[in-house]
Simulated scan of single mutants.
Amino acid sequence: MDADTLELTVGQHGDTAPGQVHRLGHAGAAPVEIIEVQFGAYLGENDLVCLGDDYGRV
C-alpha cells in the first residue's frame, strides 16, 4: 500500500475533494457496497471526467 492509499473497514468513509483525481478498488473476496454522496450547490454529474477504465466502459 502506498502513501496515497486509504484502506477502509466496514462503516468507514473516504472524502474526495473537488478536482481530486481518484480511483476506487476492492481487494477483498466478499461483496462490497459503495454509497456515493454528493453535496454542495451543484449535484449534477456532467462535470465528471473519466481518465481511464480497466473494463472498457469509457
Rank of each mutant, 00 (worst) to 15 (best):
Y42H: 11
E36H: 13
I34M: 12
L24Q: 07
L6G: 05
Q20V: 12
D47S: 11
L24G: 08
T16G: 05
D53T: 07
N46K: 10
V58L: 15
P18C: 02
F39K: 02
D15K: 13
V21N: 03
Y55K: 10
T9G: 06
G52E: 07
Y42E: 14
D54P: 08
M1V: 14
N46P: 06
A3D: 10
L6E: 14
L51S: 09
A41G: 12
G19Y: 02
P31W: 00
I35M: 12
L51K: 05
D4S: 08
G14M: 15
A41H: 06
G11Q: 00
G11N: 02
G25W: 01
V37A: 10
V10S: 06
D47I: 05
Y55I: 06
T16F: 14
G52Q: 04
T5I: 12
M1N: 06
L8I: 03
E33H: 09
A29Y: 03
A17H: 05
L6K: 13
E36G: 15
A3Q: 11
Y55T: 09
V37L: 09
L48W: 09
A27W: 03
Y42K: 11
G19L: 05
D2M: 10
Q38I: 04
G28M: 01
R57T: 14
V37K: 01
G52A: 15
A29R: 08
L43M: 10
A17Y: 02
T9K: 03
A27I: 07
R23M: 10
F39M: 08
G25Y: 07
D15Y: 11
C50H: 10
A17G: 06
H26F: 08
Q20G: 04
Q20M: 09
G19C: 02
A17K: 09
H26Q: 04
V58R: 07
G28W: 00
G40H: 03
G14E: 13
A17I: 05
A3V: 14
G28V: 01
G11A: 01
E45R: 11
G11P: 02
D53Y: 05
N46F: 10
A41L: 09
Q38V: 07
A30P: 00
A17V: 09
V21K: 11
L6T: 15
R57A: 07
G44M: 04
A29H: 07
V49D: 09
L8R: 01
E45K: 06
V37I: 15
D15R: 13
G44N: 12
D2Q: 12
F39C: 14
T16Y: 09
L24N: 03
E36V: 14
V32E: 04
V32F: 01
T5F: 05
A29L: 13
D15M: 12
V21L: 14
R57W: 04
V21E: 06
Q20S: 03
E7Q: 13
L24D: 04
E33P: 00
N46C: 12
I34N: 00
D15F: 13
Q38T: 10
A17W: 08
G52P: 03
E36Q: 10
P18G: 04
V49P: 02
R23H: 08
E33R: 11
N46A: 10
G25F: 12
L43I: 14
L48F: 12
G11H: 00
L48Q: 13
A27P: 09
T9C: 00
H22A: 08
M1E: 05
G52W: 07
P31C: 02
C50Q: 14
H13E: 06
G56T: 07
L51T: 05
T16C: 12
L51R: 07
G19V: 08
A30I: 01
H22R: 10
I34P: 00
L8T: 01
D4H: 12
